[in-house]
Amino acid sequence: MKAIRIILQIVILSAFSMLGEAVHHFFHLPIPGSIIGLILLLTGLSFKMVPVKLIEDGAGFLLSFLPLLFIPAMAGVINYPSLFSGNGALLMLIVVLSTIVTMVAAGIASQWLEQKAAKRKEKKKCNSHLSQSL
């Protein structure tokens, strides 16, 4: 029974993906169809138009096998043997350097904003304490 439910729910998720694809083509949007499908589903869930029960098993199943779904696309490097030459090493270096810079920027920015928000809250707390003691 559960297998049938999962398959049906994947069909529903595919329908959202195709709907997103249709919106993407119709309005010539730069956003990929699957992402539009994600936004549509998230909107549906948030406004209770789509019950979570309708997709949760299918979504959980697909996400647990996510790495498998990348493999056919990854095997496509077979058509680009140059990646494993000297030029390929250079490309890898670029990606690694850029990843490190990205990580530092995202981490520091969010931590700084978090601390700022916490300080503001503390200040508010202090102020309310003051007014209470007065």
Partner: peptide
């Protein structure tokens, strides 16, 4: 892959 991207709406929700 397309449906899997759509499925990311679930953890986000």
């Amino acid at each position: 892959l397309g449906p899997a991207v759509v499925a990311l709406a679930y953890p986000l929700y």
